[in-house]
Design a protein around this nucleic acid. Sequence first.
RNA 1: CGGGAUGUAGCGCAGUUGGUAGCGCACUACGUUCGGGACGUAGGGGUCGUCCGUUCGAGUCGGAUCAUCCCGACCA
Length: 492
Amino acid sequence: MAKEVTSRFENYSQWYNDLVVKADLAEQSPVRGCMVIKPYGYAIWEKMHDVLDKMFKETGHVNAYFPLFIPKSFFSREAEHVAGFAKECAVVTHHRLMNDPDGNGVVVDPEAKLEEELVVRPTSETIIWSTYKNWITSWRDLPILCNQWANVVRWEMRTRLFLRTAEFLWQEGHTAHATAAEAMKETETMVNVYAKFARETMALPVIIGHKSPNERFAGALDTMTIEAMMQDGKALQAGTSHFLGQNFAKSFDVMYTNKEGKQEYVWATSWGVSTRLMGALIMAHGDDNGLVLPPALAPIQIVMVPIFKTEEEHQAILDRMYEIKKNLEAMGHSVKVDDRDTLRPGFKFAEWELKGVPVRIAMGGRDLANGTCEVARRDTLTKETMPVEGVAEKIHGLLDDIQTNIYNKALKFRDEHVQKCDNWEEFKEKIKEGGFLLCHWDGTAETEQKIKDETKATIRCIPADSFVCEEEGVDIYSGKPSKGRVVFAISY
RNA sequence: CGGGAUGUAGCGCAGUUGGUAGCGCACUACGUUCGGGACGUAGGGGUCGUCCGUUCGAGUCGGAUCAUCCCGACCA
């Protein structure tokens, strides 16, 4: 029987789309550019949500919720910010429908035109800062460390499941501080939280760094990012943390009285990750058999498939499986016994592999007689027969191994596709093959733009932890002096 | 918003010089199977995106329109 998923080596985009749909994660909605996240996909997002939320709380943040609709006038306050988002906003202009006088269903009631249009939030800086104005009067009110889990809408031209949809789920943190240093520290703290989450929970190696001015968030003084590499060598921005300076405080007139009784503008940050992380997870670890989920995010960590000929045998195997299930659940693992009697084992194996379940246990008549079971791991696609006695403990350890192995595999792949490059002609060739190129850059937006125009490559980041390379050199394009290497890549 | 393509069963597609609708998967029933995506038999399901035109006759030809996808520009 032919494989259902396109090979990622033949057509990476198609492989990705197939995987998302066939692993039952999400599907295209009839609504333009929007996505339906299906229960299995949502379960993974929920796990991400839970781990991140805990990390936010551990770093002193609290959750809040702000309105979906933002009065249009709020956007005119911060000029750079509006320039960055205006082109892709959905706008509410009316508040009522009526029956079509010609009898053709319903139409927008022209009488119900809003006096001021409402913008569906593309991000919440403006509505949040207009609210913070009322919350902040004294240094005693600071810092404010709020996070919001929400949906946002950006009317993108071209969309792709999880990576770029018209509506997406995310969290956005918005903080207010008394000093620039404190806000800068928050920016760094949060990019580190994201990196820790990516590395430890998603098994995704990422590079922490600063965005070049060109790639910065609209209205930010500094944008920190975590950049990941997908298996086609393209870069994916997986999370960002922005130091907003006093831009929004000034635009929304948010001042506090300091200890000396003087009025000062507050300092701000914002940071966010989105359902794009789902795309990163799929593209970074998936293979030709389907999804590969790190145990820390797998909604089902262990699936058990009975192999039987008779009903008595089926029952005997299930009894033993539920015993193992109980032990594994006592250790905090999520286990599913696939007791569907209408499907054959081979079909189930393929299906659970497609869905990325880290460990599979199969048990048949032979195992029943020998007191054994077959344990298969998704990351390596290897199988091992082991005694049922003590199998739960073994799998407990195996899950950790799998988590580590998936990370190491992705890390190895990435490191094999990162190289230094000092020659412009070489750069143009190499960048097409995918991967990250560490190159000297003269620090100007002009050079960056010219490189982008000629090769589609952008500066993904100026590295801040791994791949930091502060050495004298000359810009790969302009030949002007440079103080260090930055990461160039073609990105999603 | 530029360039290209496609709309036929739930999904993926075929349909010749115009002659009245087909294949694979999925679905339903029964039986045989069950250690890596089973097979047989019998079924159900489509006003061929929409509108207009040419014609005795249109899935097929012409025009319009709508929608979707791909490649660019924009972006988490």
